[in-house]
Design a protein around this nucleic acid. Structure first.
Length: 557
RNA sequence: GGGCCCGUAGCUCAGUUGGAUAGAGCGGCGGACUUCUAAUCCGCAGGUCGCAGGUUCGAAUCCUGCCGGGCCUGCCA
């Protein structure tokens, strides 16, 4: 808001200076307006003069003075403009400016931070997609939180988002799953079994095998056909696990528009076969040693990859190629995947397959989420899907709560490995940043409850009384409030959800400090009213921001 | 060997794509509850931004080379 105004004023100043011959550069460099870290350098600041120094062949300070001279405050927002040391142009805004801009926010507080920046682009957001061979662990939880929050952020930014879970219900691992369960069932019957080393070891396998419904579905009375039983075991085991995954995600407040089954790719129109044939047509696939290879090295991959094995069975990559082609065939403008960092090597080959099809590989973005390491006390906890010792997402969520778990996962850049200490999270429950932010929100609600009891008319809280906001803290808060849409926009543009919690913590901090230092209620009528307007805006940011994270915003705590 | 990510306060991490005096939370120390919720606030301590060069008005940020840590490097999925 403010930045747009100031940059357009600067642009005009440049043109005006150029028209008079005071400046000569061909074009204006991209104008950057920043909020200086130090309040002594004004409300906003620009380095335009420094950027012009080279093309103008003049000292930045001189250029800055020149721009200042040609600056016309057509909007009437400036209190003062100063040129500082190397050549910064610092803007000091009139107090009325904040009031007038906050009034715009008050017109529709729930919409503050929403935009149509995405222009309704159709985005396929695929995340979690954990193999249905065991319960979700905390690593998947991080992906789930990041994906879901990103979905909310993109929707708020005007994208048409479709959230999808890709279910890898095909291939060897499914057979191994069914076999593992079946063997555990036989074992429970007292039979001697030899459990394979690459079988699934977890207790959940025994639980499924011991369940009533497993026996009903798999072990039909009177029959004794191990082969058929094994087949049914695959289906039954996978169904139980997928239900379990879905349940854990719902408990974590993560929902999908679609659960896309990998095996469905092989049905009716065999999408995998289609995709392979299409690539063969573009000579993206060639035969060697009896197998079919993707010519991905030609497109930046380290080497070529097998797509169809010697024995004719397609590899996982074949499914993935077909799946991603289909994504674009389904009409999505853009695809975003959230993958574990251990999958980073797969991107070049998938992108290669897109490029071979004439699809711009830039339309596929992949967010690589670094690992979560779980600690209990000082001890690292082993996490392996097959060891049976992993920590399940649902266990952690029940221990620390959905809000805290989500906030924790989202607080860090996905590029950083995350250390999650369960004992610490439990001990610190009352000190957790999420409570800090939630408490700030509850406080704003409490203020309005009090205000109402004191007979303050809140219904048309739309216009900030002139002169009601004069404190520096209030200007700082107003600045943050007006900056909020930019934060959401940046989070969406750069796919960085962690910006949201950081901004919320900063605003909560400023609000708590303001609240402790100044009374809102019981002041001069215009002052109280203006402050309530400010608080309403803060409340909107906190509430909207928490909503983007999928974290609750309680009215009282 | 090659690829991706990371290295910033005691710990966990931000740092607005190159800006001005380096930031938060937790932990530590010391203060503030007859007053709108103390799940809060105020103050103090704590740093060769892994190391060394380079680029320029200016570098935690960009380039190069090292050092250290994590993860990949299947005709598994």
């Amino acid at each position: 808001m403010a930045k747009e105004i100031l940059s357009s004023l600067l642009r005009d100043a440049f043109s005006s200076a150029r028209a008079e011959g005071a400046l000569s550069a061909e074009e204006v460099p991209p104008i950057v307006i920043e909020i200086p870290a130090n309040e002594g350098f004004g409300d906003y600041s620009s380095n335009l003069a420094m950027l012009l120094a080279k093309p103008e062949r003049k000292a930045p300070f001189i250029i800055a003075e020149c721009l200042k001279k040609h600056l016309k405050d057509s909007e009437g927002v400036l209190r003062e403009v100063r040129v500082e040391k190397p050549g910064f142009i610092n803007f000091y805004l009139k107090p009325d400016f904040w009031a007038s801009r906050l009034s715009e926010v008050l017109a529709d507080p729930a919409a503050h931070g929403r935009s149509d920046w995405g222009k309704g682009q159709k985005v396929l957001l695929e995340f979690v997609s954990a193999n249905p061979t065991g319960p979700l662990h905390v690593g998947h939880g991080r992906g789930a939180a990041v994906g879901d929050a990103l979905g909310r952020i993109l929707k708020a930014s005007g994208f048409d988002v479709h959230q999808e879970y890709y279910v890898n219900d095909f291939g060897n691992q499914m057979n191994m799953l069914g076999k593992s369960t079946y063997l555990r069932y036989l074992e429970s019957k007292g039979e001697q079994i030899e459990f394979p080393e690459d079988g699934y070891q977890g207790d959940y396998i025994r639980e499924i095998a011991a369940s009533e419904s497993y026996r009903e579905k798999v072990i039909l009375s009177g029959e004794d056909d191990p082969e058929a039983e094994l087949q049914r075991s695959v289906q039954a085991s996978a169904a139980v696990i997928i239900d379990d995954i879905r349940g854990a995600l719902e408990e974590f407040r993560v929902f999908f528009d679609e659960w896309f089954s990998e095996s469905s790719l092989f049905e009716n129109p065999d999408r995998v076969e289609e995709a392979i044939r299409a690539l063969e047509g573009t000579s993206g696939i060639y035969e060697k040693d009896g197998a079919k290879w993707l010519n991905s090295s030609k497109y930046g991959d380290e080497k070529d990859r097998v797509v169809v094995r010697e024995d004719g069975r397609p590899t996982y990559l074949a499914s993935d190629i077909a799946y991603h082609h289909l994504k674009f065939q389904r009409g999505f403008d853009r695809c975003i995947n959230i993958w574990g960092a251990d999958h980073h090597g797969y991107l070049p080959r998938v992108r290669a397959s897109l490029e071979m099809q004439g699809i711009d590989p830039a339309r596929l973005d992949v967010l690589f989420v670094q690992f979560v390491s779980l600690r209990r006390g000082g001890e690292p906890v082993q996490m392996s899907t097959r060891s049976g010792q992993f920590e399940e997402l649902s266990t952690v969520v029940r221990e620390v709560g959905v809000d805290a778990a989500r906030f924790f996962f989202l607080m860090r850049s996905v590029d950083s490995a995350l250390e999650f200490d369960l004992d610490l999270a439990k001990e610190q429950t009352n000190e957790n940043p999420v409570y800090y932010v939630q408490y700030a929100h509850a406080r704003t609600c409490s203020l309005f409850r009090q205000a109402e009891e004191q007979g303050e008319r809140l219904d048309p809280l739309t216009d900030v009384p002139a002169g009601g906001l004069s404190l520096p803290e209030e200007h700082a808060l107003a600045k943050s409030i007006l900056e909020w849409p930019q934060v959401v926009r940046l989070a969406a543009e750069r796919l960085e959800p962690h910006r949201i919690p950081f901004e919320l913590m900063a605003i909560a901090k400023d609000f708590h400090a303001y609240y402790n230092r100044h009374r809102i209620l019981g002041q001069e009528p215009d002052v109280t009213r203006a402050r309530l307007c400010l608080v309403r805006c803060i409340q909107a940011v906190l509430s909207n921001g928490l909503d983007l994270l999928g974290v609750s915003a309680p009215d009282r705590m």
